[in-house]
Write a protein that binds this DNA or RNA. Structure first.
Length: 643
RNA sequence: GCCGAUGUAGCUCAGAGGUAGAGCACUUCCUUGGUAAGGAAGAGGUCACGGGUUCAAUUCCCGUCAUCGGCUCCA
């Protein structure tokens, strides 16, 4: 019998008989690993443990602790979910059922079954029942014809649709129990590994992600190799929900929405306003030091402005309806973006190349008629304020300006401890250019400029095709919310089109007229969304410099009121946001209330402090920091304000 | 916009075909207490809105609006 050489991750090599399965190999090296291994890879191809090896190669085994193991586990779970659903709701049709970052889903056409009557606990019961039966996942290679025949007989048009895109000779089925699915695999050996399972939610999802197709029912679910893992997961989910900015926004009185004002139109309450103002102040100072000039433009603009920019044609449908005015033929739009206004500001007077780059910044409030189903707390609203700016520069300056903006964005993220962000370079769709305006050569240049600029930094960016704006490519900074939903915050966009449309010009060295390049950029993106994410990241415990309420003074008895008021006056004079709790309540009650309000500093004042001319500091979530003189307190506060 | 769920006091939630309840918050009174909830009393709701069924609807049905979970979209 011929032998093969198999190399292990520690680089050791062993000989095995050709045709040995991955599982036999793992069993030969470690019984304990064999018990928990879920899937293997050979020469970097991920394969079933039952796969037989006939060539030399490198082997690797994956357990639940590896991403490969988890996603295989969840992928297999999706098949069991399908089997459970099919047994309870005969005749359903299956779309796709992939693993995702936390669990898996299956898109299902429930046909004549009433979707609103789906009994998830019945499905869960059936699922766990199937797992206990220790059903093996068995792979079989099938011809395209046989595959088609199988699903034609079954009446599953969705699978037939999928098979159409596959090549003959590359089609495989997996079977477990009474269920066979079209699937390239691999899978875990059997259902016995799955010990807990829960359907998390149901949702509608268009077939193949296209809204012109039928809508299927997507079941989101998760499964684990141990029961307590599910409990931990659910607990973490509950914890994450406590950080939700919509919940905290209400509790901390940051903002709210009113039906009477309108859907998606946030109202900033005094506490939230303070956060906004501080972030704006911070950004304004950063921008001034980077050579930006701030401007103010109106909230509405002539419709013609947006026809010129091309935005009206592209987004007119998803804007608030134009405002008609009786006195002339013009119509006005609630400003959906600031760029046309800033282009007009550039046009106010002629410019020399010596002035460039000109950086025009504005905290501009814009209004967009977002689809009703898209509104989401403060992260997706219909009226929001961008920390917007437009940089007008020469073609040669683009890269340096992009780098400058990246610096600024990274500084902002760092200042607010956003260390978990993703950078995405959004380029044109590879095939379909019809969505974009302008000369393809200029697009190439703009795309190269962005990619080049990112290469000059330490930032790791992912290139995504088809995500560019209609006028140019962009670099987006994405951050996740407490429930792992990704949101775009900062953005940098290179645009060769808008300056042309607005006939922007500067005079170059040779006294000839040139068109500047426009860079759109916003580090926060939208203040609304940024504050939402910031709130979730710090769970409402804002850094001192942002915190709406910074200090609360808690006198123990009425005897300390006067002294407390005196301390408050001193802190007021230093512009700290200080409040005083004069209620006749026990100190523990006052402390609890201050903790719940997430006020960073509590100053507890009783007879001891009055006598020694001190205050007792209690820091939120940390506790008693002891008695200090007021001067010491002030220097502590000063230090804290810097972080 | 689409699929599904939800909408009861300021907040978090119970409840039932015969016009509503708890806890917290609020008001008043008592309590002057040293590091996360002192006690008592009181006040608070067209049960999202509009139709329909019924002797009777907040409850059942239909529609609208809003919110939530997704999908699609995102200048």
């Amino acid at each position: 019998m011929s032998k093969i050489k198999v190399q292990f991750p520690d680089n050791s090599v062993k000989d095995f008989n050709s045709g040995i399965s991955c599982f036999e190999i793992v069993k030969s090296i470690s019984n304990s690993l064999a018990k928990k291994v879920l899937v293997a890879s050979y020469n970097n191809n991920i394969i079933d443990l039952s796969s037989q090896l006939t060539t030399d190669g490198k082997i690797k085994f994956y357990t639940w602790d590896d991403n490969e193991g988890k996603s295989t586990f969840w992928h297999s779970s999706a098949h069991v979910l399908a089997e459970s659903v099919e047994s309870l709701y005969p005749g359903v049709k299956f779309g796709i059922g992939p693993p995702i970052s936390n669990g898996f889903y299956y898109d299902i056409d429930f046909c004549d079954h009433d979707v609103s009557k789906i009994n998830t606990s019945k499905i869960e019961e059936k699922f766990l029942n199937l797992c206990k039966q220790n059903l093996e996942f068995v792979r079989s290679e099938v011809s395209k014809n046989d595959a088609k025949t199988y699903f034609k007989d079954k009446g599953d048009n969705l699978k037939l649709d999928l098979i159409d895109d596959l090549k003959d000779g590359e089609i495989s089925f997996y079977n477990q129990g009474n269920f066979t699915d079209l699937c390239k695999g691999p899978h875990i050996p059997s259902t016995k590994f799955i010990k807990s399972f829960k359907i998390l939610n149901t949702a509608g999802a268009y077939w193949r992600g296209d809204e012109n197709n039928q809508q299927l029912t997507r079941l989101y679910a998760i499964s684990f190799p141990k029961q307590n893992m599910l409990e931990d997961f659910i607990m973490k989910l509950e914890e994450a929900k406590k950080r939700d900015h919509r919940k905290l926004g209400k509790e901390l009185e940051l903002f709210f929405f009113s039906d009477k004002v309108g859907s998606g139109l946030p109202m900033w309450l005094p506490n939230g306003h303070i956060i906004r103002e501080n972030l704006m102040e911070f950004m304004r100072n950063e921008q001034i030091s980077q050579g930006y000039q701030h401007v103010t433009t109106p909230h509405i603009g002539s419709k013609k402005l947006y026809v010129t920019s091309g935005h009206y044609e592209k987004y007119g449908e998803s804007s608030f309806k134009p405002i008609e005015v009786p006195s002339d033929n013009d119509e006005y739009l609630l400003k959906p973006m600031n760029c046309p206004h800033h282009c007009e500001i550039f046009n106010f007077k002629p410019h020399s190349y010596k002035e460039l780059p000109i950086r025009i910044a504005e905290f501009g409030t814009v209004y967009r008629y977002e689809q009703s189903g898209e509104l989401h707390g403060m992260t997706r609203v219909r009226g929001f304020t961008q920390d917007d700016a437009h940089i007008f520069c020469t073609i040669d300056q683009v890269k340096e300006e992009v780098l400058g903006v990246m610096d600024l964005i990274l500084k902002v993220f760092k200042s607010l401890s956003f260390d978990d962000y993703k950078v995405q370079i959004s380029l044109r769709d590879k095939e379909d250019f019809s969505k974009y305006i302008g000369d393809s050569k200029l697009w190439d240049k703009a795309e190269n400029d962005l990619v080049d600029a990112v290469k000059d930094t330490d930032v790791k960016a992912e290139v995504v095709y088809g995500e560019a704006a209609f006028y140019g490519p962009k670099i987006d900074f994405m951050v996740s919310d407490s429930l792992d939903r990704e949101w775009q915050l900062g953005t940098i966009q290179v645009d060769y089109q808008l300056p042309k449309r607005f006939n922007l010009e500067y005079v170059d060295k040779n006294n000839s007229k040139k068109t500047p390049v426009l860079i759109h950029r916003a580090p926060f993106g939208s203040l609304e969304r940024f504050i939402a994410i910031l709130t979730e990241h710090c769970e409402g415990n804002f850094p001192l410099w942002i915190s709406p309420k910074q200090i609360i003074i808690l006198p123990i008895t009425e005897k300390a009121n006067e002294y407390a008021q005196n301390i408050k006056n001193q802190l007021d004079n230093l512009n700290y946001r200080t409040s005083l709790d004069l209620r006749i309540e026990k100190i523990s009650k006052k402390i609890r209330d201050a903790e719940v309000k997430k006020i960073p500093y509590m100053l507890i004042i009783g007879e001891d402090e009055m006598k020694s001319n001190t205050v007792s500091i209690r820091k939120k979530s940390i506790g008693d920091k002891g008695k200090v003189k007021i001067e010491k307190l002030i220097s502590m506060l000063e230090d804290d304000m810097k972080s």
